[in-house]
């Protein structure tokens, strides 16, 4: 915990209280930035509707506190590890498609994905030797093409 994470911890505590749920706010400091997880059972309400409320909370935190972090560090907000689980699934899917592209030689598509999700896919495929990624499409709903390196 440091000076730039404390305001976010305080904000999440106020949010949780306003919503009327009881949950701990777990904080983990990672090289990519602080990760917050509302780990109590009642935080499940934020993981409903395919995690839309969590994405909304992430957006508000980005807008209100995103600039207070240095460099490329980014805040990540989660509830009951819901988004973490989704991220792991997305990385696995990206790697699976990378292997498939290498075996068949055919480009594989993943998406549409938001910028955060695309970054995860690019990083996951970068760990597969002989596979490359490229984002195609416009603005907010680009897809990622996964191909074997020629």
């Amino acid at each position: 915990m440091n000076d730039s994470t404390q305001p976010i911890v305080d904000f999440l505590a106020r949010f949780v209280e306003a919503l009327g749920i009881r949950t701990p706010v777990d904080v983990e400091d990672t090289p990519d930035g602080p990760r917050f997880d509302l780990s109590g059972e009642e935080a499940e309400i934020l993981a409903r509707h395919r995690g839309e409320p969590l994405k909304a909370l992430q957006h508000v935190v980005d807008m209100a506190y995103g600039r207070s972090l240095d460099g490329d560090r980014r805040v990540f907000v989660d509830a009951l590890g819901y988004r973490k689980g989704k991220d792991i699934e997305l990385r696995q899917m990206a790697k699976f498609l990378a292997e498939k592209a290498k075996e068949t030689g055919a480009d594989q598509q993943l998406g549409p994905l938001n910028p955060y999700e695309r970054r995860l896919v690019h990083m996951a495929v970068a760990e597969v030797p002989g596979a490359t990624t490229e984002s195609v499409g416009d603005a907010f709903s680009k897809i990622v093409l996964i191909s074997s390196r020629k």
């Binding site: 919503l19 009327g20 749920i21 309400i45 409320p53 994405k55 909304a56 957006h59």
Partner: peptide, 23 residues
């Protein structure tokens, strides 16, 4: 500040207001 680019922040506020309402 509360509407955001392309109304994205307003949409986020509506989503979270709906969650609180759901409760």
């Amino acid at each position: 500040r509360v509407i955001g680019k392309q109304g994205r922040t307003a949409a986020a506020l509506r989503t979270l207001a709906a969650s609180a309402g759901e409760k």
